[in-house]
């Protein structure tokens, strides 16, 4: 089916999230939410698990033009289930009009998505709940000052994985949420990036034609957590795709396709070198072993994809 979003210029102009939030200047997550809500349009309800984005509305202010619901960290998908089921009941029984219906969006960080909320998400996907899920993956618990989450990349430094002589930041690998979600065979799961808004719009549009779980994992640069200047957010997100660290892909009913493929990938150290959280890999001495290992991991991934 043809896309309404041929170029960036086709972006919906109506803002669903108005200015004035308490989020950091240059927050990657804020940009993702802004674009996602534009694509959903009015008549959405955002079910927000505790995390940075749950500070979007703080009494008595809200930037949202549509409904928003703050839920405990572990159970946003369960609230989505309750809202969706209730709307269906009310529509069935003609107690509300079709125009009252809402698109249900679960919005959580990677901590809730990969850790404490994974059970509730698995349940919702398993039940075939018709909802969108946007996980803004800033690779740490940013709301509490950036501690390691299950989504923190290997060798990254966080407040709870400080680099020392013994360990190179986080010694654990990033949890592969895409594969975990995909194993449930939802109709749609995709990765997105704030540097590839066109790709993102196409994916949201495509998912919008499907019923059931529509799941998105968004690379979400976090200036204070990653130790980057706020203006570099898009550049760094772009580098993550160009180096192959953040593959852009989708899976329809479990079938994976990569949507952006850079035949010639930049070396991963170009990405790593932009961020304070990887600085210990370069200073005081270059940690060749770790950098090489990370390059190898990325190469292995893409070799398997391109085979």
């Amino acid at each position: 089916m043809a896309s309404r979003y041929g170029t960036l210029r086709d972006i919906p102009l109506e803002e669903e999230v108005v200015p004035g939030t308490m989020l950091c200047a240059g927050c990657g997550g804020a940009l993702l939410v802004r674009i996602f809500e534009k694509m959903l349009g009015p008549g959405a309800i955002t079910i927000n698990a505790a995390g940075c984005m749950s500070l979007l509305s703080v009494f008595p202010y809200t930037p949202f033009k549509s409904s928003w619901f703050y839920i405990a960290m572990a159970s946003a998908p369960a609230a989505a289930q309750g809202v969706r089921d209730a709307l269906d009941i009310l529509i069935d029984r003609k107690r509300i009009e079709r125009e009252d219906d809402l698109k249900v969006l679960v919005l959580t960080g990677d901590g809730a998505a990969s850790g404490i909320g994974l059970q509730a998400t698995s349940g919702a996907i398993h039940r075939g709940l018709d909802f969108y899920y946007l996980a803004y993956d800033n690779e740490g618990y940013s709301n509490t000052g950036f501690q390691a989450s299950e989504s923190s990349p290997f060798a990254s430094s966080t407040k709870t994985t400080p680099p020392t002589d013994l360990a190179e930041g986080s010694i654990l690998q990033k949890k592969d949420l895409f594969e975990i979600w995909r194993a449930h065979k939802p109709p749609y799961v995709a990765t997105i990036s704030p540097a590839y808004i066109g790709d993102m719009m196409h994916k949201i549009e495509k998912a919008g034609r499907m019923s059931g779980p529509k799941l998105f994992i968004a690379h979400s640069p976090c200036p204070p957590g990653w130790g980057i200047d706020s203006d570099k957010v898009i550049r760094i997100a772009r580098l993550a795709v160009e180096t192959g660290i953040w593959p852009l892909k989708e899976a329809i009913n479990g079938e994976v396709t990569h949507t952006i493929i850079h035949k010639k990938r930049r070396p991963v150290e170009e990405y790593l070198g932009t961020q304070e959280r990887f600085a210990h890999l370069f200073r005081p001495a270059r940690n060749e072993r770790i950098i090489r290992q990370m390059q190898q991991n990325t190469d292995d991934y893409w070799n398997a994809v391109l085979k």
């Binding site: 108005v18 200015p19 939030t21 008595p60 202010y61 549509s66």
Partner: peptide
């Protein structure tokens, strides 16, 4: 909050 999009009222 039954007001919508009122965050502009805060210093930002």
């Amino acid at each position: 909050i039954t007001a919508t999009g009122n965050s502009m009222l805060r210093e930002r």
